[in-house]
Nucleic acid binder design. Structure first.
Length: 883
DNA sequence: GGATTCACG
DNA sequence: ACGTACGTGAATCCT
């Protein structure tokens, strides 16, 4: 038997658009409605296996309904451009799916659908009608099932006449009467004012139709009677408007809706354009790529003991390769094996890790360590760490696919090979998840499947390298890549492998003291609250504070009361318990994250922690740090700052030396904006917040008090973050108007900064991206959004990224240069940590004097700006003392 | 796994 | 009218 699926195109597109976050691909095309539409189509094809398929769209703006009622659909918000621009994409998508589309000028999709379902009814063919609009229920019949989307788009609720009867106690036809009485705000259909679904249902259960309700108005009572009598005409018209017209004149050949499946090639190319990577993979369309890149079966050879010599010969002087590592933290992970691809002979080679580590593997290990043998990898940093822990020092990497892809789009969250293959039109490759499974289900497959997959990786890297190389050139990021990021990867690995020594015993003692204090505070909190509860649970805490103790709740989160520090500080005067909770929170944080968290990461053999700097995470070009994060060790509050006392030199008689840039972001801003006043402040080496206070408040230095300086400092922060009145007012706890006055006053003085802020936003709109001084790039597709919030966010990002990103460029330069200097000057001092604007070293006593000058000198001269860069240095026996 | 909170620059 | 300061990672709770 035939089965026709009809989709209410406009309705489903709308549903998808509002149900999903505003996705966009890297060229700024919005894709959320298309994505939602696609998932729905795939699901329907898979689950329903339709023999016939059709999508109906509204055509034109004026329909016969407007002639009868000019207000029809008036007051409806205009379709946002982010959605309008997706309709052509949806239509293109449907072509790839080979699903017929239907629209007729002067009629809405509803009417086309109404007519088609009538015809199907008459022919006795089965129809599944999919819409987001409950009005469609009027079309349900023995042959027509109506599926209405609910919450989001993935789920639908199906209705046949019996189910409508069950849920509403109405027949499908009575759905029209329901709307006649209720009206519909979204279509501007009035109905009877004051009659909602409940009342309407009650009336219909009693009287059956609108007409009958009106005829029996006299039997109604009180207010209801008045309303019905007064709006009788409105109810009749509303019913008429709500009635789907089922006699649209159209030529219908049932066979023209026949569905024979989608065009895989067309769909794959569509998904690539839209960057629907997950769908490409899920449908295994990654394989059906552009004709220029057909998937080649690989000639895989698993290398054995006596094959090593031949392998080395095949590898030659330059080869794409892959190191398969299991585990998140490369400082303790397992290596599965290595794979290589030889372009010339189209040969793939797989080396199990055990072979590499055996005696027979020695020549290959030497080859890996030979800097003259060039290698191209995905994530050399990770490979280098994992291999180093196994005693093999990887050298000679001259291209890194992951690092390159990060520079091309630092916001790309999927820098795996299968992700990049989808994005850059490379031959398809399975996602690791598909081969290994994930979480508890992770398993290595048999060696044949394993070697095939890993060799496919090396092969994909081979295909990726030339593509990414060209893209880097196009974006003028080749120097950033070859001269900065690639060398930096090696510098980072060196720092991380070295690790930093911790006094674990001392940390334990600190933790024991914390535990005592926490115990005491906890007892006191229970006493003051009059009950025991989990202080760590914001939910329970909220109930205690705002319900039991009745404190005023003024800020909410998605799930309930907010209990963050800002709220608690305002509540502190009301009840002693609040201060105790703040205190508890502070110490609990130290205990769990810094004492227990750090102790877990200390290597018992060496007493060191080895952080893992991530070079491809932050959208601005900064590094991030994991396992443990050593970029957020407490410093602002003395209690927490004490944690820094356990970071000590790894050798007796050595010191910790730390140097941090002074106001690097504002100096960068002075340079980029060329603002005369700001440049002058730094050229004269003034305290920038005091100077800002003088200029903003118009007073001499002697009259700047600490409060004025504090406010000026907040304004400077705001400037760097991409200022908004609202943000500044929140930060300073002042009104928006006052914040606005500050900002205006600031810009009146720093006019070059104002011009920069205006220009950078315009540039971002024109180009779709912003760049740092070293050409690091960040795309901002939402800069043209019609949604105020999204657009504002993108504008602030446009202002902030060149500043934060250039500062990141500078300290990265300093790190690479510093590593070179330590080596060239035969210094024993070691660079250990980077904290965004600070570098930390361990230094033998006899090098203290040298390093005290060298480090600030290298940092200050890393990049030449039109204002001086300055780094302050200090040293001591612990990180705490190097302040 | 999302939400909340809080540590850093 | 709209309602967020920019960039991160980790611990904890709870659905």
């Amino acid at each position: 038997m035939d089965k026709l699926i009809i989709i209410d195109g406009n309705s489903i597109a709308n549903r998808a658009f509002y149900a999903l976050p505003l996705l966009s691909n890297s060229s700024g095309l919005h894709t959320n409605a298309v994505f939602g539409f696609t998932t729905m189509l795939l699901k329907l094809i898979e689950e329903e296996k339709p023999t016939h398929f059709l999508v109906a769209f509204d055509a034109g703006k004026v329909t016969f309904r407007h002639k009868e009622y000019t207000e029809y659909k008036g007051g409806r918000a205009k379709t946002p451009p982010e959605l309008s621009e997706q309709f052509p994409l949806i239509k293109e998508l449907l072509k790839a799916f080979q699903i017929p589309q239907f629209e007729l000028s002067g009629y809405e999709a509803d009417d086309i659908i109404g007519t088609l379902t009538r015809i199907a009814d008459e022919k006795g063919e089965n129809v599944l009608l999919v819409s987001g609009d409950k009005d469609m229920l009027q079309l349900a019949s023995d042959h027509v099932t109506v599926a209405i989307t609910r919450k989001g788009i993935s789920e639908v609720e199906r209705y046949n006449p019996a189910e409508i009867q069950e849920k509403y106690g109405l027949s499908p036809k009575q759905i029209i009467d329901l709307k006649g009485l209720m009206g519909d705000t979204s279509d501007n259909i009035p109905g009877i004012p004051g009659v909602g679904e409940k009342t309407a249902l009650k009336l219909l259960h009693e009287y059956g139709t609108v007409e009958n309700v009106l005829d029996n108005a006299a039997n109604l009572k009180g207010k209801m009677k008045e309303k019905v009598e007064e709006h009788a005409q409105s109810a009749r018209m509303s019913k008429e408007l709500a009635t789907i017209f089922r006699e649209v004149p159209m030529e219908t050949e049932w066979s023209s809706f026949g569905y024979g499946g989608y065009d895989g090639q067309a769909l794959a190319s569509m998904f690539r354009k839209l960057e629907f990577k997950s769908l490409l993979e899920k449908m295994d369309l990654g394989a059906s790529v552009e004709p220029s890149e057909p998937v080649q079966p690989l000639d895989v050879q698993i290398v054995t003991e006596d094959g090593i010599d031949a392998l080395l010969e095949t590898l030659g002087d330059s080869v794409p390769m892959h190191v398969e590592i299991v585990g998140e933290n490369p400082h303790h992970s397992e290596i599965v094996g290595l794979s290589f691809y030889n372009e010339e002979h189209a040969k793939s080679l797989y080396v199990p890790f055990a072979l590499l580590q055996s005696d027979a593997g020695a020549p290959l290990r030497a080859w890996l360590e030979d800097a003259a043998k060039k290698k191209q990898l995905l994530d050399q940093h990770r490979a280098e760490l994992a291999l180093a822990w196994q005693g093999v020092r990887l050298r000679g990497v001259d291209f890194d696919v992951q690092l390159a892809a990060y520079l091309l789009d630092p916001t790309d969250s999927d820098l795996t090979l299968s992700g990049l293959a989808g994005k850059y039109g490379l031959p398809g490759i399975k996602a690791d998840e598909e081969v290994f499974g994930k979480g508890a289900k992770f398993r290595l497959p048999d060696e044949a499947a394993l070697s095939e997959h890993l060799c496919r990786k090396a092969y994909t890297i081979a295909r990726a390298v030339p593509v990414l190389r060209v893209e880097l050139e196009k974006g003028e990021m080749h120097r950033l890549f070859y001269e900065l990021e690639l060398p930096l990867a090696g510098v980072l690995a060196e720092m991380e492998l070295r690790g930093i020594k911790m006094d674990a015993a001392d940390l334990k003692v600190f933790g024991e003291e914390l535990a005592k204090q926490l115990d005491a505070i906890m007892v006191r909190i229970y006493e003051l609250a009059g009950m025991e509860f989990n202080i760590n649970s914001p939910k329970q805490l909220g109930e205690v504070l705002f319900e039991k103790l009745g404190l005023p709740a003024w800020k909410k989160t998605k799930t309930g009361y907010s209990t963050d520090a800002e709220v608690l500080e305002k509540l502190a005067p009301y009840n002693e318990v609040v201060g105790q909770i703040l205190n508890y929170r502070q110490l609990a944080k130290l205990q769990s994250t810094y004492v227990e968290g750090l102790l877990k990461e200390v290597r018992p053999e060496t007493g060191k922690v080895h952080t893992y700097y991530r070079q491809t995470i932050a959208a601005t070009g900064r590094l991030s740090s994991q396992y443990p994060n050593l970029q957020n060790i407490p410093i602002r509050l003395e209690e927490g700052r004490k944690i820094r006392k356990v970071f000590v030199p790894s050798e007796p008689g050595w010191y910790i030396l730390a140097a941090d840039y002074s106001q690097i972001e504002l100096r960068v801003l002075a340079h980029i904006s060329q603002d005369e006043k700001l440049k002058e402040a730094f050229l004269q080496n003034m305290d920038i917040h005091t100077k800002t206070a003088m200029d903003v408040f118009g007073v001499p230095e002697s009259q700047v008090d600490s409060n004025m300086r504090r406010q000026a400092k907040a304004v400077n922060f705001g400037i760097v973050y991409g200022i908004s009145e609202y943000g500044l007012s929140q930060n300073l706890d002042i009104t928006r108007k006052e914040a606005g006055a500050f900002i205006e006053q600031y810009f009146a003085v720093f006019q070059g900064v104002r011009k920069y802020m205006d220009d950078i936003v315009k540039d971002a709109r024109r180009d779709g991206y912003v760049t740092t001084m070293l050409q690091r790039r960040r795309y901002l597709p939402e800069i043209t959004a019609s949604n105020f919030n999204l657009r504002s966010f993108a504008e602030r990002t446009a202002m902030n990224t060149p500043i934060q990103g250039t500062a990141a460029d500078i300290i990265k330069l300093a790190m690479v240069q510093m590593a070179e200097r330590l080596k060239s000057e035969n210094l024993r001092s070691r660079m250990l940590l980077q904290v965004h604007d600070e570098l930390v070293f361990e230094v033998p006593q006899e090098e203290l004097e040298t390093m005290k000058t060298l480090v600030p000198e290298v940092m200050a001269s890393a990049l030449k700006l039109d204002v001086p860069l300055r780094a302050d240095v200090d040293y001591g026996l612990t990180w705490y003392d190097a302040k």
